[in-house]
Design a protein around this nucleic acid. Structure first.
Length: 256
DNA sequence: ATGGTCGGCAACCGA
């Protein structure tokens, strides 16, 4: 099974990347975040040639998640149980034997603002949600833009960036709170080096060329799946380079 | 140096 995650930063403006990527990489599952499209405007026609099943929940301008699958997904649901808020940040579906959880974790804006506490609380609610819907001895994949750099080697300048909402003790502990349930960061299982990033801020001049990046996107697997993870890599397709999006694809293959 | 540029969508907000 091959799975991938990509923060699209507008699905409609990234169709020239996503459609060819699906056709050449042919993953079983692609999780998208920041689709930035209301459900009524979802680009069905553009995606039809790929043959993928699409389940999605969007908002007018912000957020939005989608799960694209080769086989028909089962038990699809959006948002936290019985909570109307943030349905466009959390999607889940059963694909074959796997439970897929796709999240766009709130960025947090600034540590002094309520948005940051909301981010920490959000990760706490996610832990409760996962406890309710899954068991760590089952095949579960938690994927997406987690807006958290786990370690110093996950950012280009750890000394200067320490204290950022995506790289500080509070957020790392909140993420660990979810991982402690039973998730393995499968990219780190295969690669221990610094300098492998999934996000480059395009407000910084030549951030991509200078590799001034962050590792904010993850594929987290429960132990029975992590044991069967053959490879995990960061894929930045040439089409994305032509008009750079700020995130890139993260891909993993499992022997199941 | 505490900036910068996108995307949505029509004035700023979020990242």
């Amino acid at each position: 099974m091959k799975v991938a995650t990509f923060n699209a930063n507008s699905l409609r403006s990234r169709l020239h990347v996503v459609v060819p990527w699906l056709q050449t990489q042919a993953p079983d599952v692609l999780c998208l975040q920041e689709t930035k499209v209301q459900d009524v405007d979802f680009p069905h026609e553009a995606l039809r040639p790929t043959g993928y099943h699409c389940v999605f929940r969007g908002e007018k301008k912000y957020n939005g998640v989608a799960i694209l699958t080769k086989s028909e997904p089962q038990d699809v649901a959006f948002g936290f149980d019985d909570e109307p808020l943030d349905a466009a940040r959390l999607a889940r579906a059963r694909v074959g034997p796997c439970l897929i959880v796709n999240t766009y974790v709130p960025q947090g804006q600034d540590r002094q603002l309520p948005a940051f506490q909301y981010k920490l609380d959000w990760l706490g609610r996610l832990r409760t949600y996962i406890e309710r819907h899954a068991r760590p001895d089952e095949p579960v994949l938690w994927m997406g833009d987690l807006n958290t750099a786990r370690e110093a080697k996950d950012v280009y300048d750890p000394d200067r960036l320490w204290g950022h909402v995506c790289y500080c003790q509070e957020v790392q502990e909140a993420l660990k709170g979810v991982m402690d349930w039973g998730f393995v960061d499968v990219f780190r299982q295969h690669c221990d080096e610094p300098g492998h990033y999934t996000f480059w801020d395009y407000r910084m001049p030549k951030a991509l060329e200078r590799n001034l990046g962050w590792r904010l996107d993850y594929i987290m697997a429960t132990p029975p799946l992590a044991k069967r993870c053959r490879t995990c890599w960061i894929d930045r397709p040439a089409r994305a380079l032509a008009k750079p999006s700020d995130h890139t694809f993260l891909v993993a293959e499992f022997d199941i």
